[in-house]
Every structure is written in structure tokens, then in C-alpha cells.
Design a protein around this nucleic acid. Structure first.
Lengths: 245, 245
DNA sequence: AGCAGATTTGAACAAGTTGACAAGATACCT
DNA sequence: AGGTATCTTGTCAACTTGTTCAAATCTGCT
């Protein structure tokens, strides 16, 4: 009871020291997955397992024990490497978010160079949708896509901060790009258009089989190419040809 | 251990008897919220509290104790009235789903009578979106909207089967209506269009403030009228004017 | 009034949860 | 080779979880 606070602080300190100790860390990264005993390697094993469990059961549904079991390591290692359950959760975003954000920024840069307005809008739509849909269909990252989908419908404070922290900046960039591409539209129209795009994307990424079931197997989110073509076409039309009555 | 099965059956039987005992039930409904001791009234109190808790924390995140606390009743009453946690969860859908489904069916009937193809599509879109968006903006039902959003991104819901049971039938009706309204489109196009519509709807319903934040307060899902106009316009354009490359 | 059944209550249970720790094992540097 | 910091391990205690129980209380009917 009395010592709980002290113990927690001690652990947190040890952990932070380990994190900031860049020298040792970097040295080990080069030999990742080499020896049996390697902090960076087990860290990654835990992250992968956690990603799967969080995707399948949500933050509250997933248990640290199940994650440890899946990673085939003792439970205590999770707490050693990530402090606590929430630290582990954030670590997943710190690992994955840059991947998506960088791809989107690259896509936006390409779109900026396109002179034709219609093509430009199409390229912006692609810049937003394609990176995520690709991730969805990739075996290893499909779990992260489902975690992301859960986030948007979760009002919990610590969860919300994660989304805001990692994805709000790129969101503003996309909205600005849309405004430049369609200067005749009101700011409301642009914003609702962006939200619609996000909604379609998240819904597709999070799908757990309903799309395929309802379409009699005709539509399959796993089929990245076909999914992208249909969704891009839909959202391009929505952005370009919608008129608010 | 040994008696667990028998006890559970006994409880379930008692519960079913209480449910089918329409005479007693009906008599009590008239005096709902009247006396301190009233099965139907406490049932409703628990349902309301549960709706809020499930919306805020998800199925796993919500605890029966917190629900009981919110409803200001002892914990055991939850299990008495609904059998178990999942029974309580399903009861929420049994209460809310018919409301939505009926409104959609009515909307589809109206659309079916419209001769102009473009207007027909618009009316189908409205039949799908408006009932849910209206529910979202109603104070009392806003929690249910978030529960619904969680459910579609939760693979465990597959196990709970509640979405399929309550909403697949009406989904098929909508898809068929779209097919009749746009006979030149492929089945894939129709299906992806429907999924996009659902995605936009669910995303907007589940929103926890991000839409307003990103738009600088300009777009507000609480404003049912404006939200509907924008989303309907977007999805109408998406369905009517999209061309897969 | 009195009975029977429905409802409520507080307490308890078993299973499973997180986070903690001390002791052991390993790798790296001087 | 020895010291030091990093990493691993098995085990533990404190706490929550969903669910159940037996007894108390109320309601409507005969």
C-alpha cells in the first residue's frame, strides 16, 4: 500500500533510463533477432503479439497475460519493457503511425504537382485511402488497422489523445490540399467531404466479414486492388460532384 | 461446480416465465415508475444505465458493477433481470433496433414510388442515413449510436451475432432497392456503394469530437439538419456519378 | 388474512486481472 | 577476469471481474 507509489516510480525510472540510453539501444538494434537474449528483439515480439490481441479484443478485452502467452515470454517482461498496459498500447502507435503518415505526405506532394483539378482531387483521395487499405491487406499489419478503427469510436481520454497526437497534423494537411484543389467549395463542404472519406476508409479497414457476407462474397476488403479502385471512384465522385441542396 | 448448470437453468427458467407472463407484465406497465417495487421499471433503469456504460467503455470495458451503480440498484438485480452481461447487452438491441429498422423500411417504401431515378437514389440514401443521424442527435439515444459503431469494428461481435441478426435483413432490402434504381451498375458497384454509405454513417454517429475539432467547430454532428444535408449530398453523388476506372 | 410468486438485497464465490519484486542469467567494457 | 548494467524468470499479493446464493420483502389474488 504505502510502498506502491515508490515502487511504481522506481520502475518507471528504470524504464525511462533504459529508453533514453540511446547508445546501448542502437548498438543492439543492428543485431536484432540475432541472439536469444536481446532486449530490442523481445520488445518487438511483445509488440507484435500485443497488436494482434488488442485488435481482436480491444484495449480492455485484451489481457497482458494473453499477450505474453502469444509472444511466448513471461508476463513480467511486458511490464519491464513497457511500464504498463497503456505504455504497451502507445508503443504500438509510435511504431506504426509514422509509416502511414509518411506515405500520405508523399502522396500529397505528388498531388500538389498535378495541374488538372479533377485528377488532383483523385490523387488526394488516393493519398489518404491507399496507404491504409494497403496496410489492411498486408498480413502483418492487418491487426493495426483494426486497432485504429476502434480508436475513432472510443471516447476514452487516453485513447483519444493518441489519435489526435499522431494523426491530426496530417489531417489538417489533407483538408488544406482539398481546399486548394476545389477553391469554389465552402469550408464546410470540404470538411464533410474529408470526414466521409475517413469514415469509408475506417469502416472498410475494420470490417470483420460483413461486407463479404452481404455481397455474397463479391466484395472482399482483402483484395486491395479492387477495393481501392471502388472506394477511390466513390469518394472522388462524392467530393467532385456533390451539391448541397 | 456441479450445481452451476442446474442453478443457471433454474434462473433462466424463472426469467423466461417472468417474460412470458404477459398478464402480470402488462398490468405493471401501466403503473411504470409508480411504486418502489416494479420489475418493468427497474428493468428499464438498468437498460438505460447499461446503454451509457457500454457506449462509454465498450462491452469488455463496462462492468456490471458500474452499471448497477449508475442505475442505483444492487448488482444482483442485473443478473436477475437479464441472466448475464451478454443478455443485458442484447436486450439493448432488442429495445432499439426495431425503431431504426422500421423507419428505414418506411423510407424505402417511399423511395420505391418515386419515378425519377436520381431522386429515387437520393431517397434511398436518405432512408438509410436520416433515421440513424436523427437518433445520434437525440440526447437519450446518442449512447446507442456509439454502441452500434463499436459493434461493427469488433470481431467479437461476430460471436455475439447481434448486428447480423438485427440489421442484415434491412441491409439486403436497401441493396436490392439500389439495384432496381440503378440497373446499369454492376453488383460490385452497388455493394461498395452501400458499404461506403454505412461507413460514413457509422463514422459520423460514433464521432467523439474529432470532426468538430478538425473543422474548427464548423461541422457539428449534433446539428442533425446540416449534417444530413451534407452527407446525403455526398453519398448521392458517390452512388450516381462514380465510375470505376 | 394469508398464500404464492415476483422482486430485491447484501454477501459470498471462483476465476482471472494487473503490477511488483527479488533473484538469476547474460552480454559488454575495461 | 571481473564488474556492471541490461535483460529474464517464477512467484506473489492485492484487487476486479461476472455470477450465484439464501434470505428478506413486497404485490396481487383468492
Amino acid at each position: 500500500m504505502i510502498s506502491q507509489g515508490r515502487h511504481r516510480r522506481a520502475l518507471r525510472d528504470r524504464w525511462n533510463v533504459a529508453k533514453s540510453e540511446k547508445n546501448a539501444e542502437d548498438r543492439k538494434v543492428v543485431m536484432i533477432e540475432a541472439t536469444q537474449r536481446n532486449g530490442a528483439a523481445t520488445r518487438m515480439r511483445i509488440l507484435m503479439a500485443a497488436e494482434g490481441e488488442f485488435a481482436d479484443h480491444g484495449f480492455d478485452g485484451a489481457t497482458v497475460r494473453q499477450i505474453a502467452l502469444r509472444a511466448d515470454i513471461p508476463v513480467a517482461l511486458v511490464n519491464y519493457h513497457f511500464g504498463n498496459k497503456e505504455g504497451l498500447y502507445r508503443a504500438i502507435f509510435e511504431m506504426r503511425a509514422p509509416m502511414i503518415v509518411d506515405q500520405r505526405i508523399a502522396g500529397l506532394r505528388l498531388a500538389e504537382m498535378e495541374p488538372d483539378p479533377e485528377r488532383k482531387v483523385e490523387m488526394i483521395v488516393k493519398a489518404v485511402l491507399v496507404p491504409n487499405l494497403h496496410m489492411r491487406s498486408t498480413e502483418k499489419n492487418s491487426s493495426y488497422a483494426r486497432i485504429l478503427a476502434r480508436e475513432v469510436s472510443d471516447p476514452k481520454s487516453h485513447h483519444r489523445k493518441v489519435v489526435a497526437e499522431f494523426f491530426d497534423p496530417i489531417a489538417y494537411k489533407v483538408i488544406e490540399a482539398l481546399q486548394r484543389a476545389m477553391p469554389d467549395r465552402t469550408v464546410e463542404e470540404i470538411n464533410w467531404g474529408y470526414q466521409a472519406m475517413l469514415g469509408v476508409m475506417v469502416y472498410t479497414m475494420a470490417d470483420t466479414g460483413r461486407i463479404s457476407r452481404l455481397s455474397g462474397g463479391l466484395c472482399d476488403p482483402e483484395d486491395e486492388m479492387t477495393t481501392s479502385r471502388h472506394l477511390v471512384a466513390l469518394m472522388k465522385a462524392a467530393l467532385l460532384y456533390s451539391r448541397v441542396s
